[in-house]
Amino acid sequence: MKATPSNRTTKAFERALAARPTEKCVLRLYVAGATDRSRKAILRARHLCETEFEGHYELEVIDVFQQPILARDGQIVATPTLVREFPKPVRRLIGNLTKTSGLFVGLDVAAKTSVRP
């Protein structure tokens, strides 16, 4: 097969797809106070990040009771909310992260989990 320019670009694109994303995923979890619901949400978020992003993530947990200004800046209405700030577009997952289907749709990681059971 001759190495035509179009072939090269196609290959480069496929390589890029196969490679793991190098940028870190930026996540923020807004919780309200040290409640059971908050604790569960934090644990689930950490677990999710470890399994899905394997260290390529930043997870910031914010207690809106402590920092109400951040709740305003982040346009938070419901708690707990997990916001994916990066990569774009912004996604907001509201709830205690127990419904996994919604969770994966929200974070665009559904395809990966189906490939690796």
């Binding site: 309200a32 106070g33 619901r37 209405v77 996604r91 509201i94 709830g95 205690n96 919604g102």
Partner: peptide, 21 residues
């Protein structure tokens, strides 16, 4: 379109913002 529900939640975020304001 940004929002996905993943379980139980409350509107404490709104309360906090209102309270702060």
């Amino acid at each position: 379109n940004e929002i996905h529900e993943t379980g139980e939640y409350d509107l404490e975020g709104l309360f906090v913002r209102l309270n702060h304001a």
